[in-house]
Design a protein around this nucleic acid. Sequence first.
RNA 1: GGGCGCGUAGCUCAGCGGGAGAGCACUCGCCUUACAAGCGAGGGGUCGCAGGUUCGAAACCUGCCGCGCCCA
Length: 876
Amino acid sequence: MTESLDAHRPDAPTLAGQYQPGEVEQRRYEQWVADGRFRASADSDREPFTIVIPPPNVTGSLHMGHALDHTMQDALVRRKRMQGFEALWLPGMDHAGIATQNVVERQLAEQGLSRHDLGREKFVERVWQWKDTSGGTILGQMRRLGDSVDWDRERFTMDEGLSRAVQTMFKKLYDDGLIYRANRIINWCPRCLTALSDIEVEHTDDDGELVSIRYSDDVVVATTRAETMLGDTAVAVHPDDERYRHLIGTEVELPLTGRRIPIVGDPHVDPAFGTGMVKVTPAHDPNDFEIGQRHDLPALTIMDERGVITAHGPFEGLDRFEARPAIVAALRAQGRIVAEKRPYVHAVGHCSRCRTTVEPRLSLQWFVNTSPLAKAAGDAVRDGRVRIEPPELAKRYFAWVDNMHDWCISRQLWWGHRIPVWYGPDGEVVCVGPDEEPPSSSGDGPGWHQDEDVLDTWFSSGLWPFSTLGWPEQTPELAKFYPTSVLVTGYDILFFWVARMMMFGLYAMDGKQPFDVIALHGMVRDDHGKKMSKSFGNVVDPLDWIDRYGADATRFTLARGANPGGDVPVSEEWCQGSRNFCNKLWNATRFALINGAHAVGPLPEAERLSTVDRWILSRLAHVTAEVDEQFESYEFAKVCDLLYHFAWDDVCDWYVELSKPVLAGGGESAEVARRVLGHVLDQLLRLLHPVIPFVTEELWTALTGGETVLTAPWPVSDRALVDDAAEAEVATLQRVVTEVRRFRSDQGLRPTQRVTARLDGLAGAGVAAHEPLIRSLARLDPAGEGFQASATLAMPGEVSVALDTRGSIDVAAERARLTKDRTAAEKEAGQARAKLDNPAFVGKAPEQVVAKIRERLAVAEADLARIDAALEALSS
RNA sequence: GGGCGCGUAGCUCAGCGGGAGAGCACUCGCCUUACAAGCGAGGGGUCGCAGGUUCGAAACCUGCCGCGCCCA
């Protein structure tokens, strides 16, 4: 007497015929938050797992890039949570200095106002107002995606704690001599009126002009920026250039100005470019600035902050782009233009915020001396403390950190962290820490003023992995969750943000890295591999997909395309496919519930399991192990692919179909099948939950009666369930069924049409017990009185199926089918034989490989014999 | 100009030394009581080109052609 396995839940819900995500998602998400499922505690005994979100701009909204980045992070965090880690995913935003200031300035401009009309204090107040009311829409959008972030820990780079961190860091770097102020050439945006760091400049190949100007009979220079000649203070040639060596040390008169400027020899000059002579404008070109320094040349600034010419009579007051043709015309009038090339395509820098052409500008700015910091940032990856995934991208990282320039951190903005430096009336410079009184209010007398500038936004986001955890205070959060576990971001941001966090983290946290792993992904692209851009009109709004197909479908589409470090193409059709997959899961579970499947109690003992049960459990064991492994190496695409095929092919197409007759038959075998089906779905839904959280939650709770799949233990592969014999048997069964189906299809038999058949040789192939299943799936009735075989299908392993098609066999179709098979078998045999006939192969290839080819030849020859016999029978 | 990477089925991509794969698209047949957002079957590729290494190359090496990205 065996104990009944059935534990029917009378409350088991019935599911609708289709999955409707919209209805489910909001309800589930609100419940998760209300139940505190995403909260992480610093006093937990559990091992921590931490991800800090790459903070989106406060001005931003959710785009596909975020959706991809967040899907990956959420999948990692949800899995770790299921594995029992104290999993923290910390959300927040950065203040996006230039971008945010631009937004508010535009609003003011509509009222005909500038920020100067309001004054600094009122303007900043206004920006805060904007931030509070319409900033941060992206946070609401993250809920639609299903992000399991700890909302209680949301941070903003401008909030009090993080501002304190910024000031602390500035002071620390300043005191260590790693921050300095200097007059340097920096990238300047004449529209935003601020300095930019190198990485805020985007280079594009633009049409320009290359004009060659004769300064004297001996001196001709080529330039794309003729207008800057007004600021030339030298002409340079390569010191080894035979053509011009004799000119070094002489002078030439600069046209239009009458100034005499020296000719210098500098190895930076490329003798092959143009005439091999270059004009040197130290105040308006970074390379020229360096040449100027080497030769002690004066730097003449000829433009104001808006790019307007400030000197030289007729050109004064002209914008830089008006001045260019005017100066060329003036030079031409003097017969000094000896060559012109238009269009001349060359790289031009643009402000990454407003696209304005960047103007190199000599000005007094604050810099971080990055050399010691960048060295440490490189070493942390070199010595393995920080792992970059995929490892190939480490090369790019090194290329950046090993050649880093000093970082210009001052911005001529009002929105941001104001530089904590005060200047005294007698030239004093004081850097003030967070707990120190600024000199202006400490009775040191009048005349003190604070630096007007603010810090680059990246300065504060560089502190993100620890400022968000409470640094500079030694908080329990910092102790528990730092270093963070993984940083997930795009390779496009490796240089600026990631490298900065590495430098700051190692420096501020006594050499402890900000994260153990940097997991990189690429850009989301359209279904032709094109970058999404407004000008192309191929931008897809993830919220649109979430509305129409569900968050799960959107996430699955992204995760399925996410190969490490690779770009991720998406299309609406693929999203529909993902939606269909969710619906497939829905219906599989629906079928299971209708048939009384459940996940209560232990699995039946091995001897009570059918071969088919043992097969699906064996498959489950393999898939679980593989999925787990792929997750560990951030192979989201492989995780999705494995689960997709396991769910659809193994579970739905075969296990469910094979179980139908068993379930219908009732009795103990049906009881066992109900439990096994329930178990497989239970585990499958858990494995899928990190990627598609909503539908799996809905189905898992319906199936198991459990409270939430969110904290259900993550499946562990049970190697004891691996069953090679069962897998082989089911493979044979599948082959027989598929062969019969193929015959039926080729013969044009309707799926509903039953055909009588006699099955021979099943015992020899070890599948005698499965005859009923084979008949069921292949729709074959038993041969009875008057059975007359009109066709015989011979299959590998001595199995043959004789079918009675009432004499209506389509001989031509059958001959064509067999001939096709014969060609394939012949090719196979030929290839194998060729190899085996090669003594070098037999002699040098590993024994295993040779054996495999021998086996292949044997199978192919047997197939040939079988097919020939069938063809013979067909013609007689 | 320097560096990195990529060219595999119509499209997008896996595979990266031993039988050419997936999704979508395509063709044929089906409302087979979980699912037509579905079921069954099928077609389709001298793996950019040319050399080389190897018993064996889509995979490794060299060169060329084409494309992309980053930096200057």
